[in-house]
Design a protein around this nucleic acid. Structure first.
Lengths: 156, 156
DNA sequence: CCCAACTTTCACGTGAACGGCAAGGTTGGG
DNA sequence: CCCAACCTTGCCGTTCACGTGAAAGTTGGG
């Protein structure tokens, strides 16, 4: 209970939408669209209502971009995947607002569960891709076998 | 030059578009659209111009569907990925048309190269997904560490 | 041969994921 | 205080990947 104002630096500078978007390789339009879909909310707004993004926003945007580009998820699926974390995001404020360790633990544990859900989903996708690789490998082997056979029958 | 009509059994029954589509979990419209994009061509057409698909067509359709659903590739990317094989597909006819072992070897070798290209692309994608998994795992670990720390400082 | 069920091509409609513009407000250096 | 460069909220346009008829032709069992 000592030391009242526990809200010091946040250390990272806040970025405006174009800066933030460029930082993670997106367009401002996309970022606004993602917000419209409820995928994220800027950490703050300026006096004149400019969107302001912090480092955790950038992480989130990078994650979204990864899910979209690398994993090929639709924004609806991403929304689904981040749904839990979106609820936690509301807790994020609560996390910094409360000093109650029990509350903080609850929030952190939910977050861990969310991460586990995400890795699970990603691993499932990896599994399906691996199956496709195996399939293709098998087809390659079959072709190699036929090549060998032909070479046996008609050596050049 | 002996034996004019060399087109005997093909063994597998030919399916019409709805049957083929249902078999691989697609719609007839999608299959026609894929043909329009040049992703495949039915093995044959009936007297009255009905599309007729054989087993290799189904394999191809399943592969396309896998690339679309599991890998999340766009149809343009899939087209790119199958491009080589599409050229080989034209060779497919040639393969059965020729009895020349040297020509058959060339076709088979090209096919092997195409398979290797495909697995390479898929493995790259798997790598990016794995990186995301690692990232998420790291974040989970960090949360776990903070949980442990809080539990040390304020044991319930 | 007939007819219901399937298919053809053509064409317009739709939802997702933005792009781009207009009309106005905000920032911040000079 | 001024103004260029940024931002805001609409809102309409576009591309992709199909969905959904319409109008006509094909298949195949009875």
């Amino acid at each position: 209970m000592t030391d009242a104002g526990v809200r010091p630096a946040e250390s990272t500078r806040l970025l405006r939408i174009h800066e933030a978007a460029a930082e993670v390789g997106l367009t401002a339009r996309s970022v606004r669209y993602y917000e419209e879909l409820g995928l994220l909310k800027p950490a703050a707004r300026s006096e004149g209502d400019y969107r302001l993004y912090d480092e955790s926003d950038l992480e989130r945007l990078r994650f979204i971009k990864g899910l979209r580009d690398d994993a090929g998820f639709s924004l609806a699926e991403i929304s689904q995947l981040l749904e839990d974390e979106a609820a936690r995001e509301r807790d994020h404020v609560a996390y910094h607002a409360t000093a109650d360790p029990r509350e903080r633990l609850r929030i952190l544990r939910d977050r861990v569960a969310s991460f586990e859900q995400q890795t699970q989903t990603l691993r499932t996708k990896i599994g399906r891709l691996q199956a496709m690789v195996d399939e293709t490998e098998a087809r390659r082997q079959r072709s190699l076998a036929r090549i060998a056979e032909i070479e046996r029958q008609a050596p050049e």
